[in-house]
Structures are given as structure tokens and as C-alpha cells.
């Protein structure tokens, strides 16, 4: 008899706690989620860039989602250099063919994967980019070769809308 009473209490106790926990979570979550990117920030998710003026060997930097994006029209030399690198020499192995679908155009976030600084063009030991903050060297494919950054510079989603326009995002 006493055993049965205990079980009823246990049930009520657990059920109350569970409902209370769900209620608390339902109140806390909006307070946390309000800090995530809002609708107006998300609305700026894509941008179109006219690249007709870009000549080989030059880089255009545009702002996308508050971050710089490097659009590099690479020379044949740079492409060759990027493509002949062996995978085992890379810190974060990625084929140049996968990073630049059209070999002449390299589009990537100009953000160092270490702590988010903007690397400098045509600098560093690998003829690509060099981050002045903590000394990360990137190659002509934007891949990390030396320094504290853990990954290659990120390639965002992009497409050629027509021959002269790139849509990022």
C-alpha cells in the first residue's frame, strides 16, 4: 500500500519537474536566440559583383555579410603553382580544382581562419596571402601553408550570373 503511494508521488514529482523544465527552457531560449543574426542581417545574404574590369593578376575585394571577399583573377603561373602542390604538403588538404571551379577565378572569404584578420595580397612565403596579425601564410589557392591558422580560407557559395557578374551567397 505504502509502495503505491510513493509511486504516485514520484510520478507527480517527475511530471512537475519536467513541465517546469520545459517552461523554463521556453523562456530562456528566446533570450538566447535574440542574440543570433536577425532577419535584416540575414536579408543581406547575397550580393552581385561586376568583375569585367578585373585583369589577370589582380584582386577585387568586396564586402559580403560584413566580411571582405577576395575575387582574384589568377595568372596562368599562379594556377600552375596552385595545381602542382602535393596533397601531403598541405595542412588542410583541398585540391585547387575543388576550390576554383573555373581556374582563372578564385573567390574566397578574405578572412584569416586563425582569428579573423584580413590577409594581405601578394605577400608571404607562398606568393598568395599573408596575415599580418599572427603570421599565417596562404598559397595562390588561398590554402594555409604555414602559421597558426587551422584551415584554408573559406570558399563561399557563388556563381557566375553571366560572363561579367558573380553572385556571392
Amino acid at each position: 500500500m505504502s509502495e503505491k503511494k510513493t509511486k504516485r508521488r514520484d510520478f507527480l514529482f517527475t511530471a512537475t519537474t519536467a513541465v517546469g523544465a520545459v517552461g523554463a527552457a521556453a523562456v530562456v531560449w528566446p533570450m538566447i536566440d535574440q542574440m543570433n543574426p536577425d532577419a535584416s542581417v540575414k536579408a543581406l545574404a547575397s550580393t552581385e559583383v561586376d568583375v569585367s574590369s578585373l585583369t589577370p593578376g589582380n584582386t577585387l575585394t568586396v564586402l559580403w555579410r560584413g566580411k571582405p571577399v577576395f575575387i582574384r583573377r589568377r595568372t596562368q603561373e599562379e594556377i600552375d603553382e596552385a595545381r602542382k602542390v602535393k596533397m601531403e604538403d598541405l595542412i588542410h588538404p583541398e585540391k585547387d580544382e575543388d576550390r576554383a571551379k573555373n581556374p582563372e577565378w578564385l573567390v574566397m572569404l578574405g578572412v584569416c581562419t586563425h582569428l579573423g584578420c584580413v590577409p594581405l595580397n601578394d605577400k608571404g612565403d607562398y606568393n598568395g596571402w599573408f596575415c599580418p596579425c599572427h603570421g599565417s601564410h596562404y598559397d595562390t589557392s588561398g590554402r594555409i601553408r604555414k602559421g597558426p591558422a587551422p584551415w584554408n580560407m573559406e570558399v563561399p557559395k557563388y556563381e557566375f550570373v553571366d560572363a561579367n557578374t558573380i553572385k556571392i551567397g
Binding site: 542574440m35 543570433n36 543574426p37 542581417v41 555579410r65 560584413g66 566580411k67
Partner: peptide
């Protein structure tokens, strides 16, 4: 992203 409330 949560700390920033955006992408930068």
C-alpha cells in the same frame, strides 16, 4: 555568430 549577432 551568436556573439556577433551577424556574420562579422
Amino acid at each position: 555568430t551568436w556573439l556577433w549577432g551577424g556574420y562579422s
